[in-house]
């Protein structure tokens, strides 16, 4: 599903964020990317979402080499991915419903179909009753769940989350992770960057540990 072959990313000024990183994630996998801050976790996720381009090596997603996706096709590529940030990045002047509907409206779905899918996504994250609220009226945990609903509303093949629980306490974090588990169980490939090792251990999924831009360790799934 996602294959990194000798992928490097260096920034102008000589900083190497990733150095010859290779790994493979199968379809339907649930993988944690972990490591200290600055280890290259975010960069790795941003390369998958084509927010940035690698400097060397090859990334293949869904059998498609990302090198070959031209700029004009990036939006269509992103429609097959759901991305979740630590800061939920919701539009503060739109209701919960409108926020979740955004990827669907952009993709040109009919209002009926959009409404159906938005409510399904909100139902999944347990916020169906808050569809008319503005993001500011919600708690931090609820806001993050709206962000997740937005990321899954268009039924992506891959869910990518960068420190999705960074702003949440242990209990809420656990709830959010269970939500990701739920999506993983219906076949969505999930990749989550986190430095919360306790959380990581309690779920026992496969993990890839980065250190200074290189793969330091890989931990297989523990059941």
């Amino acid at each position: 599903m996602i294959r990194f072959s000798e992928v490097s990313k260096s920034y102008p000024g000589g900083h190497d964020a990733l150095k010859r990183v290779s790994f493979e994630i199968d379809k339907g996998d649930f993988v944690f990317i972990t490591g200290h801050s600055g280890a290259g976790k975010s960069t790795l996720l941003r390369l998958i979402a084509l927010i940035e381009r690698q400097s060397g090596g090859e990334i293949v997603v869904n059998g498609q080499s990302l090198n070959r996706i031209r700029r004009a096709h990036v939006p269509y590529y992103r429609r097959r991915i759901g991305f979740i940030f630590q800061d939920h990045r919701l539009l503060s002047d739109r209701s919960v419903f409108e926020n979740v509907a955004l990827p669907l409206t952009i993709a040109g779905l009919t209002p009926n179909e959009t409404g159906r899918r938005v409510r399904a996504a909100l139902d999944r994250v347990g916020l169906l009753s808050k569809e008319k609220d503005l993001p500011a009226q919600l708690s931090a945990g609820e806001q993050q769940r709206v962000g997740i609903a937005r990321a899954v509303a268009h039924k992506p093949d891959i869910l990518i989350a960068d420190e999705p629980t960074g702003n949440l306490d242990a209990e809420l974090s656990h709830d959010i992770m269970e939500l990701f588990d739920l999506f993983n169980q219906v076949g969505v490939t999930v990749v989550i960057a986190t430095h919360d090792l306790d959380l990581l251990r309690s779920f026992g999924h496969r993990s890839i540990t980065l250190r200074a831009g290189q793969v330091e360790a890989e931990q297989e799934r523990t059941e």
Binding site: I69, G108, L109
Partner: peptide, 29 residues
């Protein structure tokens, strides 16, 4: 709205309606 580029049926997720209807909806929105 152009059809998603180089998407094989296997890769295609359940999104990306095209055609005149989508185009009109895009302008209306």
């Amino acid at each position: 709205t152009r059809p998603a580029a180089k998407v094989t049926p296997r890769q295609r997720s359940g999104i990306g309606a095209g055609g005149l209807g989508a185009w009109l909806r895009a302008h209306r929105s």
